[in-house]
Amino acid sequence: MKNAIEISHLTKSYGKNRGVIDVTLNIKEGDIFGFLGPNGAGKSTTIRSILGFLKFDSGNIKVLGMDSVKDHVNILKNVGYMPSEAWFYNSMKVAEAIKYAADVRGLDCGEEAEKLCKRLKLDTNKRIKELSLGNRKKVSIVCAMQHKPKLFIFDEPTSGLDPLIQKKFFELINEYVSDGATCLLSTHVLSEVNKYCKNAAIMREGRLALLDSPDIDDDTFLKFYYDEEDL
């Protein structure tokens, strides 16, 4: 099985502040990979480096066999990303935001978008500024999934979603993954990783620790959240 994501010795700092240090990580195609860690551990920095939002200091990243710097645009054609904060242009209607995302991709995703909106019970006639966080997250899910990408990257996707929509969200992920997609799931919710992920890693203070199995207990999990002085 090929790697969907290959991160090799990634280091990124923000001036004097630490971002991530020497992160090496491979995620196989078809995997649902859990990415855990406390706030500020470096999960988002890693994700944002993969997507080309950040200019990293050293290391290299390959996504779907392409170099993250040189083939940035081609990579994004095959990626569906859902950021932790789902922000869109406030003046747009939901339908306009979804269509805009498809139009920029140069694709007609109308059928898939309609199916997703129906399953997530998303009212496409409302304006973005009228939506709650949960509903904005639904828009973000549709924008990330409507073009049926090869790779999904979700950054804390379930915060703000009600339990029923969370269940539907994971059903959708499983469907796309069973069709050949790969999923990187960054989350604080251990139960999601235990239940849905095949492999997992935890970040702490900018460094990565791979887990033998995503099926870990609460105590082991929480150890990564304590400060060194707490231990």
Partner: peptide
């Protein structure tokens, strides 16, 4: 400023 950058820059446009 409007936090829409992540949406825009996750689309395949340089």
């Amino acid at each position: 400023e409007g936090h829409t950058g992540e949406f825009l820059y996750s689309l395949p446009v340089s």
